[in-house]
């Protein structure tokens, strides 16, 4: 069985870390990740950029509405995610609109990825 582990934390606190503190946390995580990778258990690892860099596509209306900032509602739940490689926000919004046409309702939050480690586990 494959599992996704979703990471939550107070962004204000994480953004208040100094570079040294941030590096120290990442170094400790890297040790665990490396061990998991050797065991063939580690899939992709992603660190998202802050929510200030987020854009949200509300697809519960036609045409979908683009909103600055993260998805802030609480009545919907996180059901899945895509990782796509696009050269601009316009391009990724185009992809999101295509997906939205195929599956209207809810929203897509678009977050740039800061760190991407493809991992070693086979799908």
């Amino acid at each position: 069985m494959q599992y996704a582990i979703l990471c939550y934390h107070d962004e204000n606190v994480v953004c208040a870390w100094s570079k040294q503190e941030d590096d120290a946390v990442m170094a400790r995580l890297a040790v665990v990740q490396e061990r998991l990778a050797k065991q063939g258990k580690l899939g992709p690892v992603v660190r998202l950029l802050p929510t200030t860099a987020a854009t949200t596509l509300r697809k519960d209306r036609e045409p979908p509405l683009v909103i600055d900032g993260p998805f802030a509602e609480t009545k919907e739940q996180l059901l899945g995610f895509y990782v796509v490689d696009c050269s601009s926000l316009e391009e990724v919004l185009e992809v999101a609109r295509e997906l939205a046409a195929a599956n209207p309702g809810g929203a897509y939050e678009i977050r740039p990825i800061g760190v991407f480690n493809p991992g070693s586990a086979r799908a």
Binding site: L49, P50, T52, A53, T55, V66, D68, S88, L89, E90, P112, I113, G114, V115
Partner: peptide, 16 residues
């Protein structure tokens, strides 16, 4: 590169 990516993402948002 991470800071550059964040900066670029914010410019993309602003330009819209």
């Amino acid at each position: 590169r991470k800071l550059i990516a964040e900066g670029q993402a914010l410019i993309d948002k602003a330009v819209r």
